[in-house]
Design a protein around this nucleic acid. Structure first.
Length: 271
DNA sequence: CTGAAGACCTGCCTGC
DNA sequence: TGCAGGCAGGTCTTCA
C-alpha cells in the first residue's frame, strides 16, 4: 500500500483522532505479522498517546514512557472506528481507548510489523540506524543526490528507491519523479548530468508534496483512517499506464521489469 | 563493497 | 465455473 505520502496521510488522520487518548486494552488476534508483535498490553495499558510522528515509512506512536513503532508493509491499514463495530477480515489488532474509540490494524498480506522501543535510543535501532534523509527535509538537497550518484552505476530508479540514500520513495513515486525529470529509469546514476539530477531532486519533492496534498494514492486498497480514498492516483502520468499515450508527447508508455518490480516510463521523453 | 534476485503472504485479475 | 499463473505500493536476506 503505502509510500511516504500515504503514510503521512495516515499519520495526520490518526493524529486528528487519537492524540491525548488513553489505551484501555489491546486485542491481538494474530501476532504473527512479518515479525511477531510484542506484548503490547503490559506496556501500553493505561498509557496516554501523546504524539504521532513519521520517519521514513514508519509510524511512531509516542506514549508517556515508550515508543510504539509500526510499519504498514504493503497492505497495512489503520482505521478509527467506534469500538462496538465488529472486526472485519484480516483485522489483526484492535486498540481500545477509554473514550470508546477503537483503532484497528488490518493487513491481508501481513508484511507489516510493529515494535516497542525506548524513547531515547530508538534512532539507534536497526530499523532506523542506517536510513537516509527525509526527502522533504533540509538534509535532502540536489548536491546530496549528486554525491550519492557519483560512482554508482546502478539504474537511477534503484538509487531513488534505496532507503540508505533517501527514504520514503517506493515504486510508484520513483516512476513518477523520473518521468517528471525526463530521466530513463534504467540509466546508470553516474551517467546523469548534475543539472538533470538537480531537476530530479526537484521532481521528487514536488511529486511527494502533491501526493500528500491530494490525500495519497489509492490504486488498490489504500484508504485513509476514516475509510476515504486518496486522489493522487488520478494524477499518475506513467505508473500503471503501459500502452497508454504519454501525456506530454503521445508515445506509448512502456513497462519493463527492474529487479523484479514493474517500471513505467515514456521511451521518448525519458533518456 | 555493489547490485540482482528470492523470500515473506494473500487477494485479485486474466486467460485458458 | 474452475483453476493456474502473474502481479501487487516494502524490506530483509542471500548470492554473485
Amino acid at each position: 500500500m503505502p509510500e511516504l505520502p500515504e503514510v503521512e496521510v495516515v499519520r495526520c488522520g490518526l493524529e486528528s483522532y487519537l492524540i491525548g487518548k488513553m489505551v484501555e486494552c489491546i486485542e491481538v488476534r494474530r501476532p504473527d505479522l512479518r515479525y511477531p508483535i510484542p506484548d503490547l498490553n503490559t506496556v501500553l495499558r493505561g498509557r496516554k498517546l501523546c504524539q504521532i510522528k513519521r520517519r521514513s515509512k514508519y509510524l511512531l506512536f509516542f506514549f508517556e514512557d515508550t515508543l510504539l513503532v509500526w510499519h504498514l508493509g504493503m497492505t497495512g491499514q489503520f482505521h478509527v472506528l467506534p469500538r462496538d463495530i465488529p472486526a472485519t477480515a484480516h483485522e489483526h489488532v484492535c486498540f481500545l481507548f477509554s473514550d470508546g474509540t477503537s483503532l484497528r490494524y488490518r493487513d491481508s498480506r501481513r508484511f507489516g510489523y510493529a515494535g516497542l522501543l525506548s524513547l531515547d535510543g530508538w534512532q539507534q535501532h536497526p530499523w532506523f540506524r542506517d536510513l537516509g534523509p527525509e526527502p522533504l527535509g533540509e538534509e535532502f538537497t540536489g548536491e546530496y543526490l549528486i554525491r550519492c550518484c557519483k560512482m554508482r552505476k546502478a539504474p537511477m530508479k534503484q538509487i531513488l528507491m534505496n532507503a540508505h540514500v533517501v527514504v520514503g520513495i517506493g515504486n510508484i513515486y520513483a516512476c513518477e519523479a523520473l518521468f517528471r525529470a525526463h530521466i530513463h529509469p534504467a540509466r546508470a546514476a553516474n551517467r546523469i548530468s548534475h543539472m538533470r539530477l538537480q531537476r530530479l531532486f526537484q521532481a521528487v519533492r514536488q511529486v511527494l508534496r502533491e501526493a500528500i496534498d491530494a490525500g495519497g494514492s489509492s490504486i488498490r486498497d489504500f484508504v485513509r483512517v476514516d475509510g476515504k480514498p486518496g486522489y493522487f492516483a488520478h494524477d499518475f502520468k506513467v505508473y500503471g499506464r503501459a500502452g497508454e499515450a504519454c501525456p506530454d508527447c503521445g508515445k506509448h508508455i512502456r513497462r519493463i521489469m527492474q529487479s523484479g518490480r514493474s517500471t513505467f516510463y515514456c521511451p521518448r521523453c525519458q533518456h
